[in-house]
Nucleic acid binder design. Structure first.
Lengths: 119, 119
DNA sequence: ATCATGTATAATAATGTTCGAATATTATAA
DNA sequence: TTATAATATTCGAACATTATTATACATGAT
């Protein structure tokens, strides 16, 4: 049986974990990396070519994604191949696309509605 | 008909928008605020009491959420009530919980598997 | 061994985020 | 009007994130 204080601590901790996942996704380059990995694994070099991000910077971002277990690696000889570990990340990605769509739509509507009113 | 360069620009822009949404969610206090607003609207004061976050700081976070159109406001006399604008944000929240669950599970399994091997 | 290729890490400067403190705004009541 | 309660904004210091540069490490070939 947990105290209310303990429960509150658990919640705070939960929010911290939650925001940690979001932090990992909260970068355009990491979004681009994940979008590139969505249907197939890729080596770092392939990712460099696809994205135009410098090798060092890409490696740093991949390191962040690895640490948070969002991507996994497989070495084949000299190359290291990256895959998405948990497909739910892809679902989250797509959900955010939906939110974006609706956000853009509602902004467009707001502008339309505002057209005839004084500013 | 768009050039490949234009397409790439669109993509980069898309990733920027995507990460912007994630950035907004990438803070434990904002996660806590959203979790509190998930079934009903609340005034700022109620949120202060529920969360223990200072009024000024709460107001700052609410301002960020407002700007990104993740929450909406309604004024009633002296109080301002906040609601979640787009229910898909809640879906995203829950999806992240799932990812967390599985991440914890897989880590536990990894530890179990590692138990009998040398370190 | 040396070399070439692919990948990872460290150090640093620039930029962005967060929180507390003080102050401003808004609406209502007296 | 003045006072009060609820909310919002501004500023600055502390801290975190990012991209670049240089360097290190790992693998396979010679």
């Amino acid at each position: 049986m947990k105290s209310d204080k303990a429960k509150a601590m658990n919640k705070k901790n939960f929010y911290a974990l939650h925001s940690d996942v979001c932090k990992t996704l909260a970068n355009p380059k990491r979004q681009e990396i994940l979008d590139n990995l969505r249907e197939r694994e890729m080596s770092v070099n392939e990712l460099v070519e696809k994205t135009g991000i410098s090798q060092a910077n890409l490696s740093q971002h991949l390191s962040i994604l690895r640490t948070k277990r969002i991507v996994s690696t497989r070495r084949d000889g000299i190359n290291v191949y990256y895959t998405i570990t948990n497909p739910k990340i892809i679902a989250a990605f797509d959900l955010i696309s939906d939110v974006l769509d609706e956000s853009v739509t509602s902004q467009t509507e707001a502008i339309r509605e505002g057209m005839n009113s004084k500013r």
